[in-house]
Measured scan of single mutants.
Amino acid sequence: NQASVVANQLIPINTALTLVMMRSEVVTPVGIPAEDIPRLVSMQVNRAVPLGTTLMPDMVRGYA
């Protein structure tokens, strides 16, 4: 089972991601792999991401 990136807090739209906003968790469906967390830092979300939501590739500008 692969860990995915999950929002550690509410992340408002257009917010640049920081390490404290994300955690890794084994979830279904699988989202962005946890090993990509360092790559996600400073990328912006293109929608509001509620606490506990799995980050999907289409939620992060420039990721996919």
Rank of each mutant, 00 (worst) to 15 (best):
1 N>E: 11
1 N>W: 10
1 N>S: 15
3 A>W: 11
3 A>R: 09
4 S>F: 03
4 S>I: 01
4 S>T: 04
5 V>P: 02
5 V>I: 12
6 V>Y: 02
6 V>S: 03
8 N>L: 07
8 N>V: 15
8 N>P: 02
8 N>Q: 10
9 Q>K: 06
9 Q>P: 01
10 L>F: 08
11 I>K: 00
13 I>A: 13
13 I>H: 11
13 I>C: 03
14 N>C: 04
14 N>H: 09
14 N>P: 01
15 T>A: 15
16 A>S: 09
16 A>W: 13
17 L>P: 02
17 L>W: 01
18 T>K: 10
18 T>P: 00
19 L>R: 15
19 L>H: 14
20 V>F: 13
22 M>Q: 00
22 M>Y: 02
23 R>M: 06
23 R>Y: 06
23 R>T: 06
23 R>D: 06
24 S>N: 08
24 S>Q: 10
24 S>T: 15
25 E>V: 14
26 V>P: 06
27 V>G: 04
27 V>L: 06
27 V>K: 11
29 P>E: 07
29 P>F: 04
29 P>W: 04
29 P>I: 05
30 V>M: 14
30 V>N: 10
31 G>C: 03
31 G>I: 01
32 I>W: 02
34 A>G: 12
35 E>L: 08
36 D>N: 07
37 I>S: 05
37 I>D: 01
37 I>W: 03
38 P>F: 14
38 P>W: 09
38 P>L: 08
38 P>N: 11
39 R>W: 10
39 R>L: 09
41 V>E: 10
41 V>Y: 06
42 S>Q: 06
42 S>C: 03
43 M>Q: 11
44 Q>N: 12
44 Q>I: 14
45 V>H: 00
48 A>K: 14
48 A>F: 14
49 V>L: 10
49 V>N: 02
51 L>C: 03
51 L>E: 14
53 T>I: 09
53 T>A: 15
54 T>S: 05
54 T>Q: 04
55 L>R: 00
55 L>W: 01
56 M>Q: 10
56 M>R: 11
57 P>D: 05
57 P>V: 06
57 P>C: 04
59 M>F: 14
59 M>Q: 05
59 M>Y: 09
60 V>P: 00
60 V>N: 01
61 R>Y: 07
61 R>I: 15
63 Y>R: 03
63 Y>M: 08
63 Y>W: 15
63 Y>I: 05
63 Y>L: 05
64 A>V: 12
